[in-house]
Amino acid sequence: MTAIYVENLTKMYGSFTAVDRISFEIPEGEIFGLLGPNGAGKTTAISMLATLLKPTSGAAMINGHSIAGGEDGVRRSIGIVFQDQSLDEELTAFENMDFHGRLYRIPNPLRQEKIAELLALVELDGRQHDLVKTFSGGMRRRLEIARGLLHRPKVLFLDEPTLGLDPQTRNHLWEYIERLNREAGITIILTTHYMEEADRLCDRVAIIDHGRIVALDAPGALKEAVGGDVITITSPDPAAVASAVTAAGALRAEQYDGTVRINLQHAERHIMEIVARLSGNGVPADSISIRKPTLEDVFLHFTGRSMRDETADERDRMRMYQRTARR
């Protein structure tokens, strides 16, 4: 059964298109990732699916309810963990959970039971009567996830779930998300700009850039699309390196920031040939490395840019724009 169905969903702020005709379908029980740099439109897409934002055009169904017209059904079907914190810091962990349970009209013996169960699951039962303002970032995240699960949603939205967390907490959360999906069968849609996160967790990943989906497949298949292994050569003269290796024929070489990247199958068999060609032509090279492709390479392959290129400037400008457009 289809948990989420999205067709040509679009959001415009004035003449700026934040989300541009995205379409996808997520079967029940899948972990689906929206991967892209900051400002790519991931959060805007999630906000529309969660009925917090009205789309400019397009349609979406969640658990059989339309986001335009069936808002209440959608809201009952989803749990959401926002990118920015949405807890009441002046209340205790338990009170935040209790507030949520009452909002979703969970009757009392069951409500108390579920709260206790979930707080134990995220290992916050010992701190449940402490005010949230005394909690660390990781604890708040865990509490938000527990809260998002309280009403047994069919679909869980996680907007940058591990943003700003230390590696240990992040690992812990990943295991936790996987367990939820495996044991409770919850469909999960998450946004992230961490490649490892998408790679590790997602059954399928949609790469989103400037509001558009540029590729959508399983992480393994996406990496295969890059074309085998990645050889990176650092050199003071990348242009000469590129022309030396492409002269061999079937090779494709991309120059990027003082390095040359070559994608080819079975790189280890060709490395000697490349080295010979470089020294034969007298082209200087500082280092050569071979590795399996990552989603970073996939992003580069489909967009021609590295995800790390996205400067803070551009991101901030975008946010400013969205903010003024909303007024």
């Binding site: 009925t51 917090l52 209440d72 809201r75 959401i80 926002f82 920015d84 949405s86 009441d88 909002l103």
Partner: peptide
């Protein structure tokens, strides 16, 4: 500003 409003607005109320 502290984000809590979203929690109430996304609930089925």
């Amino acid at each position: 500003q502290f984000g809590f409003l979203k929690e109430t607005l996304v609930a089925p109320v």
